[in-house]
Amino acid sequence: MMLERKSAVIYGGGGAIGGAVARVFAREGARVFLAGRTPARLDAVARDIAAAGGTVETAQVDVFDQAAVERHAETVATTAGGIDIALNAVSIMHDQGTPLAGLALEEFMRPIDGFLRTLFITSKAVARHMGGTGVILTLSEPGAKLAIGGILGHGVSAAGKEAFARLLAVELAPAGIRVVNIRPHAVIDAPAAGSYTNDLFKPAAGGGAVQDFLESGLAPTTLLKRLPTLAEIAETAAFLASDHAAAMTGAVVNLSAGALVD
């Protein structure tokens, strides 16, 4: 059990990726603390974990409320004796497909401000409660590197998330805290798991099924001719959070199935 006796906070723990990672963390022995805005979704993940014999607690937390996030982190640290692992899996609905001429400033800024604001708030809240083996995991997308039209806000936010993780790793390394970013592509089974990407990709699907768009539109553009799965992301996250990856920090782990090569 790679994460035995570890405490893990997952923001956006009721979402597709957050929930998948939480289940694997719990399977690997971690005490999981789920935080998010929708109690019903958090409870659904918690029931799965409890049914499998894992230890889990939930809390309704608005990650845009810095004071609330800090209070929750303090409670978790008091309950568990500290925080070992944190993952920000919060989703921010945003525009993809609109070029500059038709893009409003608000739409451009929504993912940049939203994603980076939550990363700052959650990372600052947990870092102070981590010991010399703490791990902060973040998520980005291939848009951080891709040069295609119509993803101005998305691409800038993705690049910002990777830069944030890299620079945060420098600051926290002296305290023994690792920071690793995971860069998956669109996740093939996420829409079926209730992901917001089902709505995100509807315009690109052109009235067709989002699943068909993922399988025939995006998967063929990767080196492996497929897209990553929730299980692959979750299993990788567990490894990165474990002592097996103790020498890794300031890195981007590319799980895009080869959407791009660094």
Rank of each mutant, 00 (worst) to 15 (best):
R178N: 06
L152S: 14
K124M: 07
L152C: 11
P174E: 02
A186D: 11
I182S: 05
I182K: 06
P174Q: 10
R128G: 01
I148R: 14
A125M: 03
N181F: 07
G160F: 03
V156W: 02
P184C: 09
R183D: 00
G155S: 09
G143I: 13
V180S: 00
N181S: 09
A173T: 14
A169G: 06
K161G: 11
G143A: 14
I148A: 09
A169I: 14
P174G: 05
E162H: 01
I151N: 02
A127D: 04
P184V: 02
V170S: 05
K124Q: 13
T138L: 04
R166K: 12
S157F: 03
I177A: 11
G149A: 15
A165T: 10
A144N: 00
V170F: 05
R183L: 08
A186T: 02
H185K: 07
S140D: 09
A147M: 13
A186C: 11
L152R: 00
L172T: 09
G150A: 00
A158H: 14
I151C: 00
K161Q: 15
I182Q: 10
K124P: 02
L139V: 10
G160H: 08
K145H: 15
F164M: 04
L146I: 08
L137H: 13
G155K: 12
A159G: 15
L137A: 04
P142Y: 02
E141L: 00
H185I: 07
P184Y: 03
G176Q: 12
L152V: 13
V180Y: 06
K161Y: 00
N181H: 02
K161F: 00
A159K: 01
I151Y: 04
E171W: 03
G143K: 11
G150N: 07
A165M: 01
G132K: 13
V126W: 02
V126R: 07
S157T: 12
H129P: 11
G160A: 10
G131C: 13
R166E: 03
L137T: 06
H185L: 14
L167E: 03
G149S: 15
V156R: 08
A158K: 15
I136E: 07
V179T: 08
R128W: 05
I182A: 04
S140W: 06
G149I: 12
L172D: 02
V179S: 02
G131L: 14
V187I: 15
E171M: 10
P184I: 00
A186S: 13
G155A: 13
A186W: 07
H129W: 12
V156D: 06
V179Q: 01
A144D: 10
A165D: 07
A173L: 12
S140C: 00
G132Q: 14
P142H: 00
A165N: 02
A163H: 07
S140M: 02
M130F: 09
S157Q: 02
T133C: 09
E141G: 05
E141Y: 12
L137Q: 12
L139Y: 09
R178C: 06
E141R: 01
P184A: 00
A127Q: 02
A175C: 04
S140A: 09
G153K: 07
K145F: 13
L167N: 08
T133M: 11
R128T: 01
A159L: 12
A173Q: 14
S140P: 05
I182W: 11
I148E: 14
